[in-house]
């Protein structure tokens, strides 16, 4: 490299950021890439469902009733003669939306809360984290039942309720990260440059704390989706005529002995999604591990 004298920075060679480095390592992990591909496929299908679903969501054929997989209905039909594949595709929209939206809510609240508590420290930290502890101690089920009793059953509430529970762990992880980063000399350097706390947190602390947060996020989405499935199974979550994988599994379980496909296919859809998220999460944990980055 004899470009000692370049006059414009665009001539300089682009370095390898830690993100890029992590991506290069993630790419070598076949299981994680498989998870990522599967997940993206599911998301694309979910987005395109209204256009690509084989039948309309309302279409039913009461004459047909529950029928096993066939050429007309690849995954069979339910007791009302509705196409199961269509049901699963529409259910996936709700399940994935709950998973991603609730996790995003949790991520935003948790990261902000944890970063502030960890950065400010002292009494502020103590008060903020005690609030987290108190929320942790609330029995989740009672919380949800109370919410549905007071506000009625609706989707938005479900997102909020799940997000409101999942952000607690996120806040704790973020706080721990920020506390240890705060001791680093580059943070002191940023303080002595005169950066405002908000800029400092945004530019220096959050990007460096994101590794574990991203990993935890990919592992939170499946737990949120399971939670939704569980609540729907109990009748507290998604309500007909809307559907979700949890609801489909719940119906399938009722008629498991006569019509097993009604349980198996929604179960497979949920399981595959959870698997791919977990594989991806594992892969990300290995790829983002800074100790591994040094060799």
């Amino acid at each position: 490299m004899n470009t000692q004298t370049i006059s414009d920075i665009s001539q300089a060679e682009q370095g390898t950021s830690l993100w890029k480095d992590a991506w290069l390592r993630l790419r070598k992990n076949h299981l994680a890439v498989f998870g990522l591909v599967l997940l993206v496929t599911f998301i694309i299908i979910a987005l395109l469902t209204p256009w690509i679903a084989p039948y309309s969501y309302q279409a039913q054929d009461l004459e047909l009733g529950a029928s096993p997989p066939s050429a007309a209905h690849w995954l069979g039909t339910d007791i009302f003669g509705r196409d199961l594949m269509t049901q699963i595709m529409y259910g996936g929209r709700i399940s994935l939306a709950v998973g991603f939206v609730a996790t995003t809510v949790a991520l935003l609240i948790g990261v902000t809360w944890g970063a502030i508590a960890g950065y400010v420290g002292g009494r502020t930290d103590a008060v903020m984290m005690r609030m987290v502890d108190i929320l942790y101690a609330l029995p989740f089920m009672i919380f949800i039942v109370l919410l549905t009793v007071v506000f009625g059953r609706n989707m938005l509430l479900l997102f909020l309720a799940i997000g409101a529970v999942e952000w607690l762990t996120m806040a704790r992880i973020m706080r721990g990260q920020v506390q240890s980063l705060r001791q680093m000399e580059f943070v002191e350097a940023a303080i002595s440059l005169g950066l405002s706390p908000a800029t400092l947190i945004r530019r220096h602390l959050v990007p460096n704390a994101l590794g574990p947060i991203i990993v935890y996020t990919t592992l939170t989405i499946p737990s949120v989706m399971l939670l939704e499935a569980f609540l729907s199974f109990l009748g507290l979550g998604v309500q007909p005529p809307q559907t979700s994988w949890g609801l489909l599994i719940s119906y399938g379980a009722e008629t498991m002995e006569e019509y097993p496909w009604l349980l198996i296919f929604p179960g497979v859809a949920l399981t595959l999604t959870l698997f791919s998220l977990n594989f991806l999460g594992d892969g990300l944990r290995d790829a983002l591990d800074v100790r591994g980055a040094k060799d």
Partner: peptide, 17 residues
């Protein structure tokens, strides 16, 4: 007034060029 730190591995933000 500015500061130069001991550990050049810890005094630079690893995510910034």
């Amino acid at each position: 007034m500015q500061m130069i730190f001991q550990d050049p591995f810890a005094s630079l933000n690893p995510r910034m060029t």
